[in-house]
Amino acid sequence: MNIFRLLGDLSHLASILILLQKIQSTRSCRGISFKTQALYATVFITRYLDLFYDWVSLYNFVMKIFFIASSCYVLYLMKYKYRPTHDPSIDTFRVEYLLGPCAVLALLFHYRFTLPELLWSFSIFLESVAILPQLFMLQRTGEAETITTHYLAALGAYRALYIPNWIYRWFTEDMVDPIAVTAGIVQTALYLDFFYVYFTKVLQGQKFELPA
């Protein structure tokens, strides 16, 4: 564990708490892509199967449980409790275009040809593109509530912080995880556009609005 990874994980934790706060305080999931949330639940469930047979640490265990539980809870809130506030007609990204290629990539790139390792690879590739339905929705509506942008910023910060973590581990532990690093760099790059608007508008006190 190093400071970058700890801050990254805390940022990830914060992003989920911000998302829950947004849904509870506005009593609405307007502006949140159900598809992205469903992809994240899929990512956590397929990646954390090792919960049942591999002990890493209490920290690791608690975080995994939290990510699985909170992502399922968000799906419940969107699908049942606040269902009327979710508009599927603007959440139109075709997730099969993500799931298919990620499955193929997992078959091509993995560390071992076992079901848990294939699912791990799949989850890594899927996480790297899971935000696309959300960003696509943002692009379509052209604006977002400020709290939603804070959620996305925290999520992007989590990914960005994993990059110095990998550099640090490369030097101190001689450890490189090429699958996670490649997917992680792609994933972080997807946020660049969003970050530009976030820093130049939202953090200056303006509303998040994309140029027409």
Partner: peptide, 10 residues
Amino acid sequence: VLEHDHHDEL
């Protein structure tokens, strides 16, 4: 070189 027996990152 990484030992991929388990993945310690989240």
